[in-house]
């Protein structure tokens, strides 16, 4: 087996600059990434891509819940409507919390790539605290709604609301548990390759949650109170 660089195709790009299915390293043949002697891509790439597929399928699952909510939003059964129930200021604070936690999560990724344990922990902690504030605000809103007789059993609209927002909240809760686990693993085992891959997957997960929240606050809260 020769060195990696010897079999890389250095010809100028042809009409297919993206080289779909032929690996980033070169033209065709059996020696490029993912084919024959070229072997599979390195583990970090494979793990990251697999997790990206998971996130996309999670987003597809959310799309079904979004579609359900959009269909039954008007079915209030004579009960309270979105305009009467939702507090847009609360949604604004939640949005800002989640957005900043996504930002600090990105900073934690940068620190982890530089193998700086202290800064990784600091930014992961900030991410976790902002996520916890988000979750507390959401729980407070749920308790307030149920206390006002607008629980999930009141109407189809409220069932859809609690399913959609609650499912996102469950994802954030799972993310917080994962985050705590990652902080403990970085603390005890340092930046071993498998720990670094888990940290990468966690940051992808956290950013994806923020993307879902953008659709959620627009469709549920902004369309609701308008």
């Amino acid at each position: 087996m020769t060195a990696t660089t010897e079999w890389r195709d250095t010809r100028p790009p042809t009409s297919d600059p993206h080289r779909i299915g032929r690996g980033a390293g070169g033209g065709g043949g059996d020696r490029v990434t993912g084919h024959g002697a070229g072997g599979p891509a390195d583990k970090r790439t494979v793990v990251g891509f697999g997790f990206w597929i998971f996130l996309l399928s999670d987003i597809v699952m959310f799309s079904a819940i979004f579609a359900t909510y959009a269909v039954i939003e008007g079915a209030t059964d004579g009960g309270p409507t979105a305009r009467q129930l939702f507090d847009i200021d609360n949604a604004w604070v939640e949005t800002v919390c989640l957005l900043f936690s996504s930002f600090t999560c990105g900073l934690a990724t940068i620190a982890a790539e530089r193998r700086s344990a202290v800064w990784t922990q600091v930014f992961l902690l900030a991410t976790g605290l902002l996520g916890a504030v988000f979750l507390a605000l959401e729980l407070r809103e749920f308790i307030d709604l149920i206390g006002r007789g607008a629980g999930p059993q009141r109407s189809a609209f409220l069932s859809g609301f609690f399913t959609l927002v609650g499912c996102h909240g469950l994802h954030v809760t799972a993310g917080l548990l994962w985050l705590g686990t990652m902080m403990a693993q970085v603390w005890t085992r340092g930046f071993k390759p498998n720990i670094a891959r888990r940290l990468m997957c966690f940051s992808l997960f956290w950013h994806a949650l923020d993307i879902i929240w953008v659709a959620l606050f627009t469709i549920v809260y902004l369309f609701g109170v308008r």
């Binding site: 990696t4 390293g25 990434t33 891509a41 390195d42 793990v47 990251g48 891509f49 990724t109 670094a196």
Partner: peptide, 17 residues
């Protein structure tokens, strides 16, 4: 492992920059 990650011009994962 991490050396190999940087040497090869593989596909990139989401989030890597």
């Amino acid at each position: 492992m991490s050396d190999r990650d940087h040497q090869r011009e593989d596909d990139r994962t989401p989030g890597s920059h």
